[in-house]
Write a protein that binds this DNA or RNA. Structure first.
Lengths: 342, 342
DNA sequence: GTGAAAGCGCTAACAT
DNA sequence: ATGTTAGCGCTTTCAC
């Protein structure tokens, strides 16, 4: 079924069919109807392939996230889908697993597909991919993480520094003096400074509040559940004097909760726990976890908007920074110390 | 940058370039190199549009799930992506939110995009969409839910009945006699018999075990958090004598946990809770929740395989049924009764 | 081994 | 108001 068949069936030229279907140009009501009838009769569906080829525009955008299974990125993807829908675009999704080689393949594919734009949560450490995309003429927008090497690529970020600050201020306000940070790129490519904003925010806030920063309380995990758990458990064991810990991501928060439970530490009686990323389980935990909510869906939505309808913002490469919110629940309380080994 | 430019730059015909790039046909090593050099020089990337148009095959498949944000469907999507990757396809993702009108739009778009196939978790109640897709010649595979009206569409399902059975047997084995079911389409379109397999499995198992089925203990919620919570809370309040409850989905499980907590019911001392779907938070709960694990990622992977490389299986419409597994954690114990109103 | 040319389905400029 | 046609970028016969 092609436009030709419809034209033949309706006894008109292909241009006319195109005109009635696209609504552009003028056609007499009579012929319009004839065409419409033929379309229904033949169950005709215009091929996006033909159109895209002609128009040099596919109506599709590529979305690359590290992992669909991660509730944060899933929410981000949801935001992108919502926005894309309102703008009449569809989205090609793929997961890079923070592996630059894989990311390169994915972006390459996006380019071959001639997507109208790309939204990506980049692993970092591979500006080559993105430069190549830029050279090819696709517009790229980063979400959740920006790349310092590529200031020309607009980014939509959460205000991590402020988020961490609010959490640390809350903890210190509760009376904590020895608060640990469970950090490191629990998500993010190995070796990249992805999460340093959080660690920096942590240190800066402590400093501002006049609380001494104990480097021994700042631990970094590699981006795996095992590593996160090991980091959390070792922190709790090595330093029975920590009264509060801030996890710089939901994987790390999960590890903290699990490790505390395993070591029979009561939360918040023995140790207070807070984390960055207000994922759904935070509320189901017992006690429910205090968390810094980053607007994942909004970030996705916004990134899509910037990509598709904000050329102005796109030009000047200043990132869009969205606010975070501290959601206080029951996992933090005043410090009470604990006997060594809980 | 088109194939023409490359041909010109290399001083050959476009056919030769095509041959080199596709690896089909024969070209002398000399010309091959010349072409390859030109390709790199010009940073040429073949357009999937042109190729797809010619080949009548896009290398893409449409994936429609109710919600990316739902950990179960996110995992399913992950499985599809993994399989698609190995088969060299890319996936266009969209979310239907169990709204048939929206589903229709999405499928329509898939068809216009000329996807090679569609994987969908259908809301049900709209076979028109799917018949139209079938008529258009696209292969469709359902995942997670099948449509009775469309037995000709292959489906990849979890063995819900067996899963529920294992949970009920476990509960009854623990000594429970008054076990409630939190059911209804907590996910699934309103009014569809989507979850009835679980309810049926529940009743059948109880019957087989010689435990009387109390209809009053079987409650159905609409697919929203609020409705699920209301159903759970009202069950607990109305029937202080229930000693165990099986939630037929993770949204319902969440509601059960929250309601129990709100009503100060201790788990499992006052009431045992188990649920269908072993989502990540089940392990983070306190106590960790016993759950029937359905292989979401496998289902996605399998659905993709069936779609792309199992024409045989596709023909005979028997669904692929994947096994579930009961993951026993700490949320269930022997019944102990509780004083009215917890 | 290589090139010319047809054609995939569509839109838009041009002609009528 | 409507038909004819070129051409979007590619693959693939078919000649040579």
């Amino acid at each position: 079924m092609t436009i030709k068949d419809v034209a033949a069936a309706a006894g008109v030229g292909v241009a006319t069919v195109s005109r009635v279907l696209s609504g552009r140009g003028s056609v007499s009501p009579k012929t319009r109807d004839r065409v419409l009838v033929a379309v229904r009769e033949l169950d005709y569906r215009p091929s996006a392939l033909g159109r895209s080829l002609k128009l040099q525009r596919t109506g599709s955008l590529g979305l690359m996230i590290p992992d669909v299974t991660d509730p944060f990125y899933a929410a981000l993807a949801g935001g992108v889908l919502a926005c894309a829908r309102t703008l009449g675009e569809h989205v090609i999704l793929d997961v890079g697993h923070d592996d630059t080689a894989r990311e390169a393949e994915i972006v390459e594919r996006f380019l071959e597909q001639r997507v109208d734009g790309v939204i990506a949560v980049p692993a970092g450490g591979d500006d080559a991919i993105w430069r190549s995309a830029l050279r090819a003429g696709v517009t790229v927008v980063f979400a959740d993480r920006g790349l310092a090497e590529l200031p020309e690529v607009p980014a939509v970020l959460a205000d991590d520094r402020a988020g961490v600050r609010s959490a640390v201020e809350y903890l210190v306000g509760l009376g904590h003096r020895r608060v640990g940070l469970l950090g490191g790129p629990a998500s993010g490519a190995p070796g990249t400074p992805v999460l340093t904003a959080r660690e920096e925010g942590f240190r800066a806030t402590l400093r501002d509040l006049g609380v001494p920063v104990d480097d021994d309380l700042v631990v970094r995990a590699r981006p795996s559940r095992d590593s996160a758990y090991a980091a959390a458990a070792s922190l709790f064991q090595r330093r029975p004097d920590v009264t509060a810990v801030l996890a710089a991501g939901h994987l790390l928060g999960e590890a903290a909760v699990l490790a505390a439970r395993e070591l029979n530490l009561r939360v918040p009686a023995d140790v207070s726990i807070a984390m960055v990323d207000d994922v759904p389980w935070a509320e189901l935990c017992d006690p429910p976890l205090t968390a810094v909510a980053r607007p994942a869906a909004d970030m996705g939505y916004r990134a899509c908007e910037v990509l598709l309808r904000d050329p102005a913002r796109r030009e000047r490469g200043r990132p869009v920074v969205l606010p975070t919110e501290l959601v206080v629940r029951g996992s933090c309380g005043p410090p009470a110390g604990r006997s060594p080994r809980g």
